[in-house]
Design a protein around this nucleic acid. Sequence first.
DNA 1: CTGTTAGCGCGTTCAA
DNA 2: TTGAACGCGCTAACAG
Lengths: 325, 325
Amino acid sequence: MTATIYDVAREAKVSMATVSRVLNGTAVVREDTKQRVLDAIARLSYRPNAVARGLASKRTRTIGVIVPDVSAAFVAEVVRGIEDVATMYDYHIILSNSDAQVQREVDLVGTMWEKQVDGLVYMTNRLQKEHVDAFEQAQIPVVLCATEDPERRIPSVNVDNQLAGRDAATYLLERGCKRIAYITTTPGFSVLADLRGQGVASCLSEPFLQVDAKHGQYETALPLIQAFLREHEVDGLVTATDELGLAAIHAVQDVGKSVPNDIKVMAFDNTRLAVMVRPEMTVVAQPMYDFGAVSMRLLTKFLQDEPVETYTVVLPHNIVERSST
Amino acid sequence: MTATIYDVAREAKVSMATVSRVLNGTAVVREDTKQRVLDAIARLSYRPNAVARGLASKRTRTIGVIVPDVSAAFVAEVVRGIEDVATMYDYHIILSNSDAQVQREVDLVGTMWEKQVDGLVYMTNRLQKEHVDAFEQAQIPVVLCATEDPERRIPSVNVDNQLAGRDAATYLLERGCKRIAYITTTPGFSVLADLRGQGVASCLSEPFLQVDAKHGQYETALPLIQAFLREHEVDGLVTATDELGLAAIHAVQDVGKSVPNDIKVMAFDNTRLAVMVRPEMTVVAQPMYDFGAVSMRLLTKFLQDEPVETYTVVLPHNIVERSST
DNA sequence: CTGTTAGCGCGTTCAA
DNA sequence: TTGAACGCGCTAACAG
């Protein structure tokens, strides 16, 4: 049997309350009795039971993290940011994948609630009423991470994706591109991708060309982009993700043209992929790690009742110029 | 205030024991009273408190997952596998990154213990005595995931990396390679990488050439491999990871040679990177998702006292032939 | 500064 | 088939 706080109390010849006090620093304890307690703890190699603690204090020091899919590079990087800051503030994270399915996302809020998480970091492609309802019912502090809440009801951390789209288009325009197309995942699937597209579109005088690259997978996107390039005369491509950017570069090469001479390619995100292509990709870099880190930090502020200035944090994005433009 | 089991009991005009019974199916309850309870639960939208439940039952239905770094593609994929199976068996996972630091890994076992996790899925580059001691002290069921335990003390799920290394070398040899080099992260850092190298070496009659690509990052590896290629005449390259494979391909091209005509390149793992290079990489594919899924499944067997045949699961690897060889 | 005493919300005997 | 009562290990008043 593993030792409890009672065992420590007996061993140190004090009451369990005193043990609790030195454990939590919740009140002043005389130095020598404190030392006795510490010794007893060490002798018994006592570890406080976080579950009992959670029940008594109503705070579990664990945060629920709900994401579409950790195995996506972008997401994994975000999760890393979340976990790092969580660790700093002595929290653990419970991680769940939703596969971007609303029903599952809503269910997860429920099970996270059962687990008594102190807060939630939430990542979804498209925030809907069901989500907001679930948050309200669960009464858990939530921070949206790299996801948009058009109505700004829920605190969130993101970049201005529409502006980012404009910046991308402007960049290409300034470098002489005349006809720019936007390559994205299935429109309607991801708000981020849609906003970026809107940003691009808003800069164009020509009719807006958009390529639906399905789920954004390299393999499926490649032939779609090739087909598009055979039918349309373009000299600039903006892609919703790095993976699509990579597919775009290869597609351009496949139809016998050159990047960046014939067609300039500019991608979103700046995952490690961006530097692993030839030519290396110019990108609108997203602060993925910071999405996670800042979200979690914001959440800790809520949990500790620290004052917060902005509930809707807009992180800066920036263009990293490389050889594909 | 959120409803408790007492509220439900009162609402259904039964005792809390009965509510607990219908909740857990732990004893037969008359159909109509069961229905009353269910109705009451729905009416109050009652959710059992998992923390209280954990304290009373001594099982939390949460699993600790300790990995070097989720943001690595390989790891993220493994974690996805773990989480999927955990969900199937109604477990949640607490995820922590260790950055491959032994001290942190050991500490994490301790904090996971405090959290009363029911089990641990553990991933580390090099299992050491400190780890095993920590496991023993914590008395938690552990399954090693994609990590070697040379002494087979701890249950594990892995492939035979040495054999995989031999297979890679054999493959190249059969295709006419005469001088093969192995490109790896800092030797001694990862047991997996070392074993693969040993496998490669065991097939070679020529002296074994090994390139220390530091931490295995594309950017730092690239110039190192270029330098190596300028000094050595080789016609085959095996790399410890996909990222290094990509660097190798580009390095070959940078020194004015062709893949696969002049030098064949063969990588390990088969992350999505493998198909995103030109030429696409031939790889020894690792079942990353399965590492996670099978580990977690094995752990559930321990937790449910199911019989298990093998404590050391060796998953099959296979060569995926593409254009780089 | 320290000890006593209630709970926290639930599982689980033991009787009835 | 159901209920009463105890305990899981700890925090948090409240006394002293």
